[in-house]
Amino acid sequence: PEAADLRALARHLYEAYLKYFPLTKAKARAILSGKTGDNMPFVIHDMKSLMEGEQFINCKQVPIQELQHQTSTLTAGLGGFAGAHSGSEYGFLGMSSISGEEPPDTLELRFFHSCQSRSAEAVREVTEFAKSIPGFSDLDLNDQVTLLKYGVIEVLIIMMSPLMNKDGTLISYGQIFMTREFLKSLRKPFSQMMEPKFEFSVKFNTLELDDSDMALFLAVIILSGDRPGLLNVKPIEQLQETVLHSLELQLKLNHPVSLQLFAKLLQKMTDLRQIVTDHVHLIQLLKKTEVDMCLHPLLQEIMKDLY
């Protein structure tokens, strides 16, 4: 009976994962391996292809709803970042336009802003996934906030891995493949942002997890009882222990010949924390050095006093 419960939990989390995350690993790998027929991603490898890529983008235009007032208020002092996007068509990768007349230095910033928009949407998806973990919504609300604050960037980096190979990454819901070399060619410190994620992802992908494994692993990350400032650790640890048992069983059944996969996966959580720490420090550096940079209010909330 216990194993049956653990399998039911794995199925439940996999269904939630499929519901809330639009680009699964299965889809991403099909795109990356060219198994999607004529529907190949547009490749961005230099400034010319970056400009040409505009027609391939179909960014989500999220209607203004409940948070309009709040985000407007929050962004009023931030150069109106979110407000600048709402009410108008998204251009390339969420950018208003790209023309040769604009100073080259602004390109990285605009690209960075478009990445922030997608990241904020991804935070919403991760939040919905977290809420689907049995018992999560019964935790103290402050602890739910803490778990998301500390876990969400780790989750996003794990979710980025299936989109990456050693040569580049899918972006814009799999419509575009941006090469690693192009990202490295951006000016500093933007050029330094993605390289650690590529290095991590290439190694992480050798574990060959599938989407059902990923769903459990993401839940384990979210339910970390050692996040700073948690008020009531015990119920979080109890929830995580159940998900860990479910993950261990899942890996035994799904990867019977992959020895020590469970242990190897848990070790990745240590690497993840370092990557997030470095990422947050890089963002803090950007805030100091880039006069025109404004951080999305949701990401600002998450990164403030994080590490």
């Binding site: 999220v62 209607p63 203004i64 709803q65 409940e66 948070l67 309009q68 709040q70 985000t71 929050l74 979110a82 709402s86 928009s117 904020a120 949407e121 935070v123 919403r124 939040t127 919905e128 809420k131 919504s137 609300l141 402050n142 739910q144 906030v145 803490t146 998301l148 604050k149 400032g229 999305h296 209010p297 949701l298 909330e301 998450i302 403030k304």
Partner: peptide, 21 residues
């Protein structure tokens, strides 16, 4: 803590409908 994280708090409290980010 939730006072300092109003958007996260709202995402946690809201239904699953998309919100403007």
């Amino acid at each position: 803590l939730k006072e300092k994280h109003k958007i996260l708090h709202q995402l946690l409290q809201n239904s699953t409908s998309p919100v403007d980010l």
